[in-house]
Design a protein around this nucleic acid. Structure first.
Lengths: 147, 147
DNA sequence: TTAGATGCAAATGTTTTGCATCCCC
DNA sequence: GGGGATGCAAAACATTTGCATCTAA
């Protein structure tokens, strides 16, 4: 489902965020991408239509989106920048050796989630006295052998 | 099971690593800790008996240990330094709001691993054409609400 | 009108690197 | 003895922050 500017504007307002041009374009670029872009990849993408955008604004915006629950933040495995994902569906990620991420296909993610189950998470919360915000499942892909 | 200096020395040699005093003490400190220390926490611990140790050596050593498969690297969730774990048993981690990690109790980790199963991982490998080096399961604990 | 967002530059924090010296094998 | 490891300082990155200016509400 393509997201119009109006959809994004409404989405922000529903979440109590100010809808600025920069934020809308950053979110649109993130939502249109399936490659889990980093902050500076988003900067490059948005600058094509909005050359004045600054990297600090990208970082600030991604933080705001993340805190509002509008995107996920993927923690880098072997160093490098964080990566972001506007796809909030319950899916697992594969961390590639070069630092990028791939989505696990939908049916596999669903089977993983089904097997894990809410009951075990609830038991973790009860026994450890915490609330679990999210369950991050990362499959780390192996570095190919050097020839 | 406490690890003697000789055990550590042998362990390194079996993995093709040069066994220096610094490396042995860094590994001993990591192995003795259950708090998933960061590089500079390890530096402080080892410096008590070895004041000359440098932070660069701690980082280099942790990287060597990680590449040799002798420790795990825990990717920080909300910024901050990476954390390390010499416990290689198959257990999940809980990422706390302050950036530290806790081990999931052994029985819960085992139940999680049992439910996930090797069959699904094998199917992922087959369908995506990758090798899965490890499966990282992080439960993200929620930030407590601000008053 | 005004609280909050932006852009720039500088600061911060983490990790890596260059190089002279040291020390395990 | 020699090649890899160490320690120090400086560099490289990723990210945050201070502040003057702008802008959405």
């Amino acid at each position: 489902m393509p997201m119009t500017d109006d959809h994004i504007h409404d989405l922000f307002r529903r979440h109590g965020l100010r809808a600025t041009r920069q934020r809308e374009r950053i979110y649109a670029a993130l939502h249109a991408s399936s490659s889990h872009p980093s902050a500076d990849e988003l900067l490059a993408a948005v600058r094509e239509s909005d050359p004045g955008l600054s990297l600090a604004t990208v970082y600030n915006t991604l933080d705001v989106l993340w805190e509002a629950g509008l995107c996920r933040r993927l923690n880098p495995v072997g160093g490098g920048p964080s990566r972001y994902d506007a796809d909030l569906s319950n899916h697992a990620h594969v961390a590639m050796p070069d630092g990028r991420f791939m989505d696990l296909p939908e049916d596999l993610s669903r089977r993983l989630a089904d097997r894990l189950g809410a009951d075990l998470v609830a038991e973790v919360e009860h026994r450890m006295g915490i609330r679990v915000e999210s369950v991050n499942l990362h499959l780390i892909a192996r570095m190919p052998e050097q020839p």
